[in-house]
Each structure stands twice: as structure tokens, then as C-alpha cells.
């Protein structure tokens, strides 16, 4: 039955593209009714006026596309949120505060770690020197992570080498 498919989800595909894009309901529906009238009875078991079942696939399709759009928007939202709002982005001041605290925290933790290691291992200046520099590197890494230029923590463990730029 070639025309049985008209009642399926693909039905709007038969509408000319321009009509579909303008989204004018009467034009689309009129066309489908015309097709159904020209063809044989569509043995789908549905009786009654064609307007109602024909209006449905269109709505279904619109719904499906809308849901798809929402899903893709939602998928995109967390990344954007954490980059803009999460960075307390309403004010540039907040962003600056965030980045500088990330950097200083890295350096500070490195220095503290080095000092503690020196204290217990007795390797006096070297632990502080090495760990302060490592802490500096970690601070730069933190800053680049929070502006989203480097893969997040632990990501890329199962991926290729290019995941860490």
C-alpha cells in the first residue's frame, strides 16, 4: 500500500519543502487531504474525516523535533553554564577572582607541600624549590582548566593522546 505510509511519521516529507518551512498548517493539511482523496482509501483502519489523523503526524514531527532541540540544548547547557555562569560571570570581577584564586591555590599548595616534605625529610631547600615550581605548573593547569582550554580532570584516560592539548 503506497499511500498507507502517508499516515506515518514520514508524511510531512511529502510536503514541498517551502511549504514545510513556512509552517502554514492549512497548506500542508490541504495538500495531504488532496493526496488522500486522489488515492485509494488508506486501509489503516482509521475512519472519519481525514483532517484529524493527518494533523497528528505533523504535530508529532514538530514535537519530536522540539524534543530533539531541547535535548541538544540541555546537552550543551552544562558546559556553557560552568564556563559562564559558573565562573560567576555576571561581573568580570568574579571571573578574575576565580582565575586568580585557582592560580594562587596551585602555587600555595605546592609551596606548602614542599615545606612539609623538607621539614620531615630534611632535604632543606630542595623540596620547597621543586614543589613550588610544580605548584606553579599546577596553577597554570588549573587556570587553563577553568577557562576550558584543557581536558577536565581525569578525562582522556580512555581516549587518544590528543585529548590533552
Amino acid at each position: 500500500m503506497p499511500f498507507a505510509r502517508l499516515d506515518g511519521a514520514e508524511a510531512p516529507n511529502y510536503v514541498a519543502r517551502d511549504l514545510e518551512r513556512t509552517g502554514k498548517q492549512p497548506a500542508g493539511r490541504g495538500m495531504e487531504v488532496e493526496m488522500a482523496v486522489n488515492g485509494e482509501p488508506d486501509e489503516t483502519g482509521k475512519t472519519g474525516p481525514h483532517g484529524q489523523p493527518n494533523a497528528d503526524p505533523r504535530d508529532d514531527d514538530l514535537d519530536r523535533r522540539r524534543r530533539h532541540l531541547e535535548a541538544s540544548l540541555a546537552a550543551r547547557k552544562p558546559a556553557r553554564q560552568e564556563r559562564e555562569e559558573g565562573a560567576s560571570g555576571v561581573t568580570g570581577y568574579g571571573q578574575a577572582m576565580k582565575l586568580s584564586s585557582e592560580f594562587i591555590a596551585g602555587v600555595g599548595v605546592g609551596a606548602a607541600l614542599g615545606w612539609v616534605i623538607d621539614r620531615f625529610a630534611g632535604s632543606s631547600p630542595w623540596g620547597l624549590i621543586v614543589f613550588l615550581l610544580l605548584g606553579f605548573a599546577a596553577g597554570v593547569l588549573n587556570v587553563m582548566r577553568s577557562v576550558g582550554k584543557v581536558a577536565e580532570f581525569g578525562q582522556g584516560a580512555n581516549r587518544g593522546p590528543d585529548s590533552k592539548r
Partner: peptide
């Protein structure tokens, strides 16, 4: 570097709110 970066998280988290 990753370990230090991980350890600096509570510092930056707390310093940000406090400051």
C-alpha cells in the same frame, strides 16, 4: 602536577567563597 592540582581544589573552593 595533577596531584597538586587536585589538592589545590579545596583551597581555591574555600578561598573563593571566603574572599
Amino acid at each position: 602536577i595533577e596531584v597538586i592540582s587536585f589538592l589545590s581544589r579545596p583551597i581555591s573552593l574555600s578561598v573563593r567563597l571566603f574572599a
